[in-house]
């Protein structure tokens, strides 16, 4: 495995453009957008090495990156599966069956909330309201919202994700 953390040429270009959006001296504003790119490129999580690398790009201390990365729930500080199933469990989703969705996935994948399947394919994570309450219950996987879920739809989705077999990121182009 490649231990050196370095963006691809394409990502580096993207990151440099991001940094240019802000007034002189305010480059730290690019931190969160860059962390999204980093998480997508480096296996879906932010390792200490990745955070040090991002710090060096922005000329800030690694601890400044860590304190931000640890604040926001979308950043994973531990390895995760290729497909992170983020099931909303707040009011409207709960009213329409989120608990059954979670239970069904737990049973089907033989993992508990917060765990990853042994083949590294799926991680199950409950999250708070994702702004999809009118099409509840729902889950997010990568950039995509899966709405109006039923148990059958979950079965189909898991099969399809398994078949595709690739990592899903928030930054994926989906439309």
């Amino acid at each position: 495995m490649n231990t050196e953390v370095k963006f691809s040429e394409e990502s580096l270009q993207l990151v440099q453009n991001m940094i240019k959006r802000y007034p002189a001296g305010k480059q730290k504003s690019a931190l969160i957008p860059i962390l999204h790119v980093a998480q997508a490129e480096f296996d879906g999580w932010l390792s200490p090495q990745t955070m040090e690398y991002v710090a060096s790009l922005l000329n800030i201390l690694p601890v400044e990156v860590y304190e931000v990365a640890s604040f926001y729930s979308m950043f994973n500080l531990k390895p995760v599966g290729k497909c992170v199933l983020e099931v909303c469990r707040t009011s409207s989703c709960w009213l329409t069956g989120a608990e059954d969705i979670v239970r069904h996935i737990e049973k089907k994948l033989n993992i508990k909330n917060g765990q990853t399947t042994s083949d590294g394919m799926f991680t199950l994570k409950t999250v708070e309201c994702l702004g999809s309450c009118g099409t509840a219950p729902m889950l997010q996987c990568g950039a995509k919202y899966h709405e109006n879920l039923t148990l059958e739809k979950i079965d189909q989705l898991l099969d399809q994700l398994q078949l595709e077999g690739n990592r899903k990121s928030y930054t994926d182009q989906i439309i």
């Binding site: 969160i32 957008p33 962390l35 999204h36 304190e67 604040f71 926001y72 729930s73 979308m74 950043f75």
Partner: peptide, 25 residues
């Protein structure tokens, strides 16, 4: 367009500005 990273509190306007400056919300 600036994307956040999962934090309800960043809807509070001053937390939002902190976040936009690249800090904790």
């Amino acid at each position: 367009v600036q994307v956040g990273a999962g934090a309800y509190i960043c809807g509070e306007e001053t937390a939002l500005l902190e976040s936009l400056e690249g800090k904790r919300g």
